[in-house]
Computed example of a mutant assay.
Amino acid sequence: MKKLSWFDKLIFFFNSVLAIGLIVAYFLPYIPPKSYPLISVLTLGVPILIIANLVFFLYWLLRMKRQMVLSLLIIIVGFGFASKFYRWPFTSEEPAGEYSIMNYNVRMFNKSNWTEEEDIPEKINDVIDEADPDILTIEEYYKNEYLEKKYPYKFIKYRSDKSSFGQAIFSKFPLLAKRSLDFSLDNFTGENNNAIFTDVIIKKDTIRLYNIHFQSLKVTEDIQEVDNFKNKQESKKVVKNISSGFVRQQNQSEKVQRSINASEYPVIVSGDFNNTAFSYTYNQVTNDRLQDAFVKKGSGFSSTYNLNYFPLRIDFHLLDTVFEINSYERIKVPYSDHYPILTTFSIKN
């Protein structure tokens, strides 16, 4: 440090702070949010921490300073961690899998008029038609007669008997048991989030398919309106809302984990987690058992949520090890605040 200028010393100070932050983030998937709800908020900042440490490493490398070792070691230690955030683009000649599944949070097909663009339901239907998935899972579903006619088998769970809003599973294959985990019955959430599952018969195989929509953090408007953060009270409110959401997600993910563990069939999880791959929520569901389709076959950042250029992947396809993941695609269309994801897979012998 003696040979560093005052400016470089300041740079290294910030480098050290962000390196420590990334180290803490490595442990977040194993720390229940109930124990340290405020620290859990750091989960959402992991992509920035990774990028920042990479920038610091390049800065010191270009200056041929040994301070580059700090960020380099942090990045190497967490290489597997970073692979959940970014996958190096590659060209694969591997054919698509025998079966396909799409997940799409459709934001009620614009029933709430969140965008002035016209014909959103028809445009979303066109996207689904072009991909033509064998299985389709939808969050924030609003009654869509076209899809209900297109797919011969379906499981639609509305939030109430008088509502047309909820979650849906559409399938070209027969569905057996249809069940809901009903988060709201345990006071884990409001009425808009839930997990549903069904048993799908694919030829001679039976698989258990989950459509999950974990607790929303309800901070989108606050994050996009940067001016809100100029007010300390607003900033504290946002952090408190996120912390509360993480605690609810912990309860929900633990309930899902128990259901998955009790399944006698291989499992596929599809849905909107409202959290990243660096979270306790994600770790509970995957539980070292399920494969992340993006980690296996994705490329680039593959953000699934449109948040002002911030790379946020919160929608997932997680498959049991009896499945071979053949391809993964994020379809970038502006018809919702989420992008649909499409995975093809095969069943191993």
Rank of each mutant, 00 (worst) to 15 (best):
N53I: 06
F81G: 02
V77C: 08
Y142K: 14
V127R: 08
M108W: 13
L42T: 10
V77K: 12
P37C: 02
E139K: 07
Y146W: 14
N105L: 03
D132Y: 14
L136N: 00
I138N: 04
G97S: 09
Y36M: 06
K143R: 15
W60G: 04
Q67I: 12
I39Y: 09
P89K: 04
Y146I: 11
V77Q: 07
G78S: 04
K34H: 11
K123I: 11
I128D: 03
Y142L: 01
Y36C: 02
Y104Q: 05
K34P: 00
Y99P: 00
L54R: 07
A131T: 10
P121R: 08
F81T: 04
K111L: 15
S100C: 05
K150M: 09
P37F: 02
W88E: 01
L61T: 12
V77F: 12
K65Y: 07
L54Q: 08
E148Y: 08
V55W: 12
I50G: 04
I74N: 01
I75A: 08
S100Y: 13
N110Y: 10
N110G: 00
R87I: 04
I75W: 02
R87P: 02
N144G: 01
L70H: 06
E148V: 06
T43V: 15
V41T: 06
Y141P: 05
D119E: 12
I128G: 06
S35G: 07
Y99H: 07
I128E: 06
I50D: 03
T115P: 08
M68G: 01
P37V: 05
E117C: 07
R63E: 05
R107A: 14
P47H: 07
G78H: 04
G97R: 10
F90Y: 15
S40K: 09
N113R: 15
E145S: 13
Y104V: 01
K111T: 15
A131R: 15
D134Y: 10
S112F: 15
E122Y: 13
E145V: 14
M68K: 10
A82R: 07
M64I: 15
V55I: 15
A52E: 00
K123F: 00
I135S: 05
I51D: 00
T137P: 03
N103K: 14
I76V: 13
N105A: 04
S83H: 13
L49T: 01
Y99L: 04
S40E: 06
E148I: 08
V69E: 08
R66S: 11
S100G: 10
I74S: 06
E116Q: 14
M102G: 02
K143N: 08
I138Q: 01
I48C: 09
Y36E: 02
E98D: 11
L58Q: 09
S83D: 13
K150N: 06
W88D: 00
E148D: 12
V106I: 12
